[in-house]
Design a protein around this nucleic acid. Sequence first.
DNA 1: CCTAATCGTTAGGTATGCCTAAATTGTACT
DNA 2: AGTACAATTTAGGCATACCTAACGATTAGG
Lengths: 143, 143
Amino acid sequence: MKRLTREEYIEAIHVLQKPVGRAKTGQIAAHMGVRPPSVTQMLIKLKDEGLVDYEPFVGAKLTPKGNALARELMARHKVIADLLEILGIDRETAEKDACVIEHHMSRESAARLKQFVEFVQSAPRDPQWVERFRKYCEGGEAR
Amino acid sequence: MKRLTREEYIEAIHVLQKPVGRAKTGQIAAHMGVRPPSVTQMLIKLKDEGLVDYEPFVGAKLTPKGNALARELMARHKVIADLLEILGIDRETAEKDACVIEHHMSRESAARLKQFVEFVQSAPRDPQWVERFRKYCEGGEAR
DNA sequence: CCTAATCGTTAGGTATGCCTAAATTGTACT
DNA sequence: AGTACAATTTAGGCATACCTAACGATTAGG
């Protein structure tokens, strides 16, 4: 089975706390596909590390430090998802893969990937080679 | 600390068995940055799964099944490392990142990335946009 | 208010990969 | 062949993320 990381919990809380300012244990558990006790346990750890403000029976919300981390993670996440989408992966799979990949890459590679995505996105629009790449994927060769 | 996966052991054995046909416990341990007992333990598990042919005090080599898996993993690994290298990451970092990323991506995305790398590599050589991207990374904008 | 259902936490246990220390096997040199 | 050294395995623990079962708190309906 897949083991989730602290960072993935941070992201989940970031998403879930938006509506009401707090994420509840049950929500987090459902969102991440684990059981509530696992969440409680992790929240205690994250609290010890100063990343979340956790109050039993009430819920958790990110501290400033946690929010900063979340923003960084989300940015990295977006880059990877964008890259995969540029290459023709459907958004849903791209999102899913980004989730698991993002935590495992050096800052250096992440930064470079970000530049690449920006480079492509800043192009007039659909630069020729993206067009050609799409064709290359479907039909045979287009070059 | 980072926990290694079965697949990473398979790859290491694949690399190390080439010269002599077998990888020894100590070699694997050194190569992966773990202690010998951890390797022995893992070799026993991999043997139970039919992936390696392990004989105590002699060494380990991949079974046909293990070799097939290794080839698949190496191919995926190469794609990711190639992509990062195309984007300007030095080979060493690219290799390192590929190691940790490859196990966490869907087949779909892996396949698409492979197509992309092939697409770029099949170009006459250094297509214009790669050139421009490199400039974009160094100086300001080049478009 | 007070009980019932729901949600959360605590307690205790599993799986997995890693470690150190000690025992065992293999090897090389005299 | 015998002994000293090196490599490997065994034995016993630690850490981490997960689980189920049982207990405690919260909330909603009467």
